[in-house]
């Protein structure tokens, strides 16, 4: 017999070991996320995928589904909290969408549209994060980092290079590369690495291909992220 839980009032079937996120997606329900990726184990840092289960907030990417759970996701309350988390991500970095090469292909920007974020609300922190252009093919624009660690994980677990890591902590946490000089050009990073092609925002960029597709015709310009993300599921 298939086991089920309730997701926003609708029954969702799940298999043993599936998380709420996996089961909900398989049943066609979109849950916002930034650090989650179908090819990697759950990370649980962005907290965009929070849902309410039995009155408690949990990360749907990490919590295994259980029979009879009542999950609230697409509610005004949870979406307001998700919007505030996005606002936090916007004010802690330096995000200038109109001049960003990733505009229209950026998951942070797309989610902000999806969740109807109209202002940053909080005070901007304006951190000082210099750009690293030392690599012949790639550029690191740290100002846009949201600490999803997808590049860290991809480089470590798939590329087997461990080019990236996070150092320091709290609001001073930041990305570093595996070189004594601190420069990407002094690592064995390559444009063909998975880590070079996995950034959901505009930190890891290819040189010399700026604005090849005009803004307005990009992935999330055409369709909202809730639709694009679920197409991958099919």
């Amino acid at each position: 017999m298939t086991r089920r839980f309730m997701f926003d009032g609708q029954p969702v079937a799940f298999e043993d070991g599936q998380t709420i996120m996996e089961a909900a997606r398989a049943a066609g329900h979109f849950i916002p996320y930034l650090c989650w990726h179908p090819d990697f184990p759950p990370h649980g840092s962005c907290k965009l995928c929070i849902v309410k289960v039995g009155g408690r907030h949990v990360s749907s990417c990490a919590l295994p589904a259980k029979e009879g759970m009542e999950v609230e996701s697409n509610t005004p309350e949870i979406n307001a909290e998700r919007r505030a988390l996005l606002q936090m991500l916007f004010v802690e970095g330096n995000h200038f969408c109109p001049s960003c090469e990733k505009s229209g292909n950026c998951q942070l920007q797309a989610l902000a549209y999806e969740l109807e974020m109209t202002s940053a609300r909080f005070n901007h922190i304006f951190p000082d994060r210099p750009v690293d252009a030392s690599h012949p093919d790639m550029l690191l624009e740290f100002n846009r980092c949201i600490f999803c660690e997808l590049c860290v994980r991809a480089s470590r677990d798939v590329d087997k290079k461990s080019v990236f890591s996070l150092t320091n902590r709290g609001i001073h946490k930041h990305l570093v590369v595996s070189a004594e000089s601190g420069r990407l050009g002094d690592t064995d990073f390559s444009r063909d690495d998975l880590a070079a092609n996995i950034c959901p925002v505009g930190v890891i960029l290819r040189k010399r291909v700026g604005f090849a597709v005009p803004i307005g015709q990009r992935i999330y310009d055409e369709k909202p992220i809730s639709q694009v993300s679920m197409e991958a599921e099919k």
């Binding site: 649980g44 840092s45 962005c46 907290k47 965009l48 988390l85 936090m88 991500l89 004010v91 802690e92 909080f122 005070n123 922190i125 949201i146 600490f147 996070l166 320091n168 902590r169 709290g170 609001i171 001073h172 946490k173």
Partner: peptide, 17 residues
């Protein structure tokens, strides 16, 4: 704010805000 490890968004940014 000083002791937040900075892993998750709400604590990293929220404690500083």
């Amino acid at each position: 704010a000083h002791e937040s490890c900075g892993f998750c968004t709400p604590c990293r940014v929220g404690t500083s805000l």
